[in-house]
């Protein structure tokens, strides 16, 4: 058994760093669940969860990248190790088998892993092409409108082009339209009212910064517009007093 090279020590050090980060973020999630009352907002839970998940990914990458080295390493106590005072840690370090509790976790994780990637899909390759069952459809319908709304709210509506399209250059966008679309940033849509005789165009739904709701920009085109003959005042007057205009 040779001594570790500088390189290998660095790898071990890196693994340690990542594990420390993971335990830290797990610890902070647990602490925030235990201590904050009321519970932290779901956005903060969500972001903590994603931090943890990133940490897990980096740990897992590190472990699988250095698999050869790590599986060949053997720990043994050096002569200067304080075996008497640190007996517990020593035992932990010298274990060759996993803790029974940890073994359970590992077994559960493996089972879950084989379930999701494993036989169920392989045995039925057509599963992906089957139409959804009624229950699944119902579930989808329940999920979709909320999700679509969320997605819609995230965007700044208005104008004829998306931000992605604008960044890529609007000349390249294939609109399939004969008329030229202006890139007007969704401000003055309603000015084009008199131009074409379509029915009603919802020409834009946009959200003002800071406002939670949408605004509908409607250009009220109509083939046969009929303006009211009786002004609002007279209608209200009749409704109030019954006097005919």
């Amino acid at each position: 058994m040779s001594n570790l090279t500088q390189e290998q020590i660095k790898v071990l050090e890196q693994s340690r760093q990542r594990l420390v980060q993971l335990t830290r973020s797990l610890g902070s999630l647990i602490a925030s669940l235990n201590q904050s009352d009321p519970l932290p907002p779901w956005t903060s839970l969500q972001s903590q969860a994603s931090i943890i998940s990133n940490n897990l990914i980096s740990v897992s990458d590190q472990l699988s990248d250095q698999r050869d080295l790590l599986s060949n390493l053997v720990a043994y106590p050096g002569p200067e190790y304080p075996g008497r005072t640190q007996a517990n840690t020593l035992e932990q370090l010298l274990r060759t088998k996993l803790d029974p509790r940890v073994e359970d976790w590992v077994a559960r994780g493996r089972a879950a892993g084989t379930e999701s990637t494993g036989p169920s899909n392989f045995s039925d390759p057509d599963a992906a092409y089957k139409p959804l069952s009624d229950a699944q459809l119902a579930e989808l319908w329940e999920w979709a409108p909320l999700e679509a709304n969320q997605e819609a709210r995230r965007r700044n509506w208005g104008g004829n082009f998306t931000l992605e399209e604008r960044e890529a250059g609007i000349e390249n966008v294939v609109t399939g339209l004969r008329r030229q679309l202006e890139d007007d940033d969704g401000e003055e849509e309603s000015e084009g009212e008199e131009e074409d005789g379509e029915e009603m165009d919802v020409v834009g739904v946009h959200r003002k910064p800071g406002a939670a709701e949408f605004e509908y920009n409607i250009a009220p085109h109509h083939p046969h517009p009929v303006q009211p003959f009786v002004p609002l005042d007279l209608i209200l007057r009749y409704m109030t007093t019954g006097r005919m205009p």
Binding site: E215, N217, P220, D233, L236, R237, T240
Partner: peptide, 17 residues
Amino acid sequence: QLKSAVLLEQADRLSLD
């Protein structure tokens, strides 16, 4: 919210007399 569809306004006070 509705301004591009309809214009909501204060009514003439005397019409609601």
